[in-house]
Design a protein around this nucleic acid. Structure first.
Lengths: 282, 282
DNA sequence: TCCTCTAGTGAAATATTTTTTCATAACTTA
DNA sequence: TAAGTTATGAAAAAATATTTCACTAGAGGA
């Protein structure tokens, strides 16, 4: 069972019998409940025989009800894990670290979940065919832009990132229709960032936005928008938490471009290696 | 059950009886197996009575064996998810992104796993009592140092990060016994970075290393070492993958310092907010 | 020392839950 | 319409989990 079991149920839905469809619907809508129910309880709730539920489990590929329950449990996070645990005053260092890491993991899971396939494809295509890529980010997002630069310089495509907002604006004014501007902004509302977006657009450059707000100006005016997502906690702002999603999104773009552009990339990588041999590369 | 169940078992270990300790060990070492075993099988394997296993489940806080199994299943990832999938030539964009995200998630899980409690505690203490914190990183790790700077500036403790290796060395030479140098280097062997470490040490500053190599010079000569971990894939170097672990480690340090230093931090945060109101903060 | 008392344990009894079997109904198709 | 097929539930059987009870060993007290 390599695919997820909810997925399996969904894809088998068409060839299920009527009663089985009822069961499938119930499981898909209440996987949490199933985990803590016996086969009787489920059967009774749905007014079908236990045997029918059991046969359903077999039909969708499990050894039995128990096996399905276990598979569901592995797939669905328990509410305890799903609820982002707040850091408490008396948490020790280890617990705080665990909560932060789990929150980061959750951010990644959620960002992956909201990742739109069409947007991703378009972004990868734009980057692959760009003659230059400029990464822009202000404040905390500047770090991500720098990281992106560090990655993409290995692809063989000319890449740039500027920290200073004046340099950013200057470089944006130099963009052309063959270039791509990747603009990273958690809120999508930072003035400097929007200035860059407008300048890039005016010059006919393609624009890719990485932001947490789908309704922001940035989202609405970029050619492609990639969304990150995160939750705010008392000791860490939403913006801080979203960083990890942005970073992974860049990773994903990079890996895609790298893979689809293998030959060119390898040349570039070798060139870099030769240049900085002497100091250890990282 | 807010904490994880393996964690609960571990923390209850001391007050378990002999037989129960055997059971606890088995579960901690083979959680995967438990998920697919009946209570008999476990009891037989360990040469104890079913009742003993059952009592164990209750003792550590579950309703019964079934409940424990479900909890374990929710906690443990299935093997399919655990195996790091290599990116293949014919993977589409979405699949590549999924693999990258999963690899990042795995990196976080593993980094958390190898996080040493004593080192973490010491690091937090050093940072809390530092009069200044300098973050150092070269190449890709420079980005992490910058990120750390952006975070820690909110704690009210004076923080710095330098990108240029000359500035780095200059600033390191200004460190005193009241200061902390956080040195980030994936390999722990970059020459510039080691120079900084030595300079910091000579000046009596406390040093915290964040690296993937526990046997590196950096590890061996820093006051505290925090380890990250990652796996290399064809389209992404180990160093690139470790970034996400470094970032989360910084997050964890930041959250800890922030929490334990709440009052001072709030003042600092307000000051920043006032200063940069006008442009949207992130 | 001897006698409680307690905690820990396993075997067996019981209860619960799952799985199988079988009979029947409903629906197809020739 | 008859034979075959599929879907279903009821009940039996099997598997599994939980409870009870009796025994043991060790701790503490008279």
């Amino acid at each position: 069972m390599s695919t997820s079991c909810l997925q399996t149920i969904r894809s088998n839905y068409a060839r299920l019998s009527d009663k089985e469809k009822i069961i499938a619907k119930y499981i898909i809508n209440h996987p949490q409940t199933i985990i803590h129910s016996t086969i009787n309880e489920v059967a009774e709730k749905l007014n079908v025989a236990d045997a029918t539920v059991f046969r359903f489990c077999k039909r969708v590929g499990f050894k039995g009800y128990q096996a399905m329950k276990i598979a569901l449990a592995s797939e669905i996070m328990t509410p305890a894990q799903q609820i982002l645990e707040e850091i408490k005053e008396d948490d020790n260092e280890r617990i705080v670290a665990e909560k932060i890491f789990k929150s980061n993991i959750k951010t990644l899971e959620y960002t992956l979940q909201v990742l739109d396939e069409a947007s991703l494809n378009k972004a990868v295509q734009l980057l692959l065919h760009a003659s230059r890529i400029h990464f822009y980010g202000t404040g905390g997002s500047a770090v991500i832009a720098m990281d992106a630069y560090h990655k993409f310089i290995r692809t063989g495509i000319q890449s740039f990132a500027f920290i200073d907002s004046h340099f950013q604006l200057m470089s944006a004014s130099q963009l052309t229709g063959k270039d791509v501007a990747v603009i990273i902004s958690h809120s999508g509302t930072n003035k400097d960032t929007l200035n860059i977006l407008n300048t890039a657009n005016e010059n006919g450059a393609h624009t890719i936005a990485i932001t947490s707000y789908p309704k922001s100006y940035l989202s609405n005016h970029a050619d492609v928008t990639l969304l990150t997502s995160s939750e705010e906690t008392e000791y860490r702002s939403e913006a801080l938490a979203s960083r990890i999603g942005q970073l992974s999104l860049i990773d994903a773009l990079y890996a895609n471009v790298m893979m689809r552009n293998k030959k060119d990339s390898e040349q570039a990588l070798n060139k870099i290696r030769t240049t900085i041999s002497g100091t250890r590369m990282e």
